[in-house]
Nucleic acid binder design. Structure first.
Length: 317
DNA sequence: AGCGAGCCCTGCGCGC
DNA sequence: TGCGCGCAGGGCTCGC
C-alpha cells in the first residue's frame, strides 16, 4: 500500500535523524520482520550495533540506510559495503520516537540511535500485517554507474534491489528504454505499470490514478500503445506521484516520521481509486470497478477505452 | 516470456 | 452479540 510517495515521505523524514547517527541498540521483537534478512550476512542485530548510518536512500518502494564499515578488520569475503534495507510491505511504518517510551501496538523492530547533534532516538519499525521487513544486505554496483537511488550519491544498491527498475522520479530513469520495453512486451498496460522490474514505485492506487488521468484502459496491450500515448502515460505517472508527494511532504514533522495507512494515503485527491459508482470527475459517468490480477481496477468506461492502433501490429517473429 | 495461483498476515466490515 | 467470511494488496516463488 505504501507506494513511491509514501515511501519518499518516510525517507525524507528519516534522513536528518539517521545521517551520521550511531546504532547503539537493536531489539527484534518479531522475527517475521526479518524475512528479507539472509543469515549469511550474520546476525541482524549484531551486524548493526556499533555502525554508523550514512543517509537514507530510496528506489521505488525500497528504502535503505547505507552503513559505514566496521572499525575492526574483516575477512576479505566480508569487505562489501552494507546497508540496512527496509521494505514497508502493505502496512509498514518507520517512526522516530524518544527512547524509553513504550512501543506502539505492532512494533516489530526497535533501534536506538545516537545522533552527534540531535541526541538519541528510537526508531520503531511498526507493521500490522508483517508483509514488510528489514534486513542487512550487501551493496552492489549499479549497472549504469548512476546513483543507486534518490537521497545518496553512492552508485550502489542493496543486492535485493538490483532487479528493481529505477522509478520515474529518479533523474537516471531511462525514458527511451521504458518506451522500447513497452513496444516489445506482450503484456497489458496496468500489469506493466505494476512490474517493478520495468518501472518501480507504482502500486495499485497510483496505477489506477495515472491510467485514469491518461485515459488509458488498464487492459490495453502495451505493444498497441502509440508513442504519444505512452509519453502521455509516463507524464501522468510522474504528475500523480509528484502531486501525492507534494501533499504528503507537508503532513509530517521534520523530526517525526508518521505515515499511516488510512489517512496518510493522500486519499482525498484520488480521482478513480476506490470511487466505483461515483461520477467520473471528467465526464460524470459512474466509475467502474473490475477485478484484474487478483485486485481491483477502478476506471471510467467512457474515458478509458481500449484503443486499437490504426495499422495492425506485425506478427511477432 | 508471461501469467495465474498461492503464500505471507491482520483488521475491518459485512451478512446471517 | 458474535461468528465466519471476503477483502485489502506488495513481492516473491512455483508451475504451466
Amino acid at each position: 500500500m505504501p507506494e513511491l510517495p509514501e515511501v519518499e515521505v518516510v525517507r525524507a523524514g528519516l534522513e536528518p535523524a539517521v545521517t551520521g547517527s550511531l546504532i547503539t541498540d537493536v531489539d527484534v521483537l518479531d522475527e517475521r520482520a526479518l524475512t528479507r534478512h539472509e543469515k549469511t550476512h550474520g546476525d541482524f542485530a549484531a551486524s548493526l550495533i556499533g555502525r554508523r548510518m550514512l543517509g537514507a536512500v530510496r528506489r521505488g518502494k525500497f528504502l535503505w540506510v547505507p552503513l559505514d564499515r566496521m572499525p575492526l578488520d574483516r575477512p576479505p569475503s566480508d569487505e562489501r559495503d552494507r546497508a540496512l534495507l527496509i521494505h514497508l510491505g502493505m502496512s509498514g511504518q518507520v517512526l522516530l520516537r524518544e527512547p524509553g517510551i513504550p512501543g506502539e501496538r505492532h512494533v516489530r523492530i526497535r533501534l536506538v540511535i545516537e545522533h552527534p547533534e540531535l541526541g538519541e532516538f528510537a526508531v520503531h519499525f511498526v507493521d500490522q500485517r508483517t508483509f514488510g521487513s528489514m534486513a542487512v544486505d550487501a551493496l552492489v554496483p549499479t549497472p549504469d554507474g548512476a546513483p543507486g537511488g534518490v537521497g545518496h550519491s553512492a552508485t550502489t544498491v542493496p543486492s535485493q534491489v538490483a532487479h528493481i527498475a529505477r522509478d520515474p522520479l529518479d533523474p537516471a530513469f531511462d525514458d527511451a528504454g521504458f518506451y522500447r520495453a513497452l513496444a516489445s512486451r506482450r503484456t497489458t498496460v496496468k500489469r506493466a505499470l505494476l512490474d517493478q522490474s520495468l518501472i518501480s514505485g507504482i502500486g495499485n492506487i497510483y496505477a489506477d490514478e495515472a491510467l485514469w488521468a491518461a485515459r488509458v484502459h488498464f487492459d490495453q496491450p502495451v505493444a498497441t500503445l502509440s508513442r504519444p500515448r505512452a509519453r502521455a502515460l509516463l507524464a501522468e505517472v510522474r504528475l500523480v506521484l509528484q502531486r501525492a508527494l507534494a501533499e504528503g511532504g507537508t503532513s509530517f514533522d521534520a523530526q517525526y516520521v508518521n505515515v499511516n495507512g488510512a489517512s496518510g494515503y493522500f486519499s482525498h485527491s484520488l480521482n478513480a481509486y476506490g470511487r466505483q459508482g461515483q461520477p467520473c470527475p471528467r465526464c460524470g459517468r459512474p466509475l467502474l470497478r473490475a477485478t484484474f490480477m487478483n485486485r481491483s481496477s477502478h476506471y471510467c468506461g467512457h474515458c478509458q477505452r481500449i484503443r486499437r492502433p490504426r495499422t495492425p501490429q506485425p506478427p511477432a517473429p
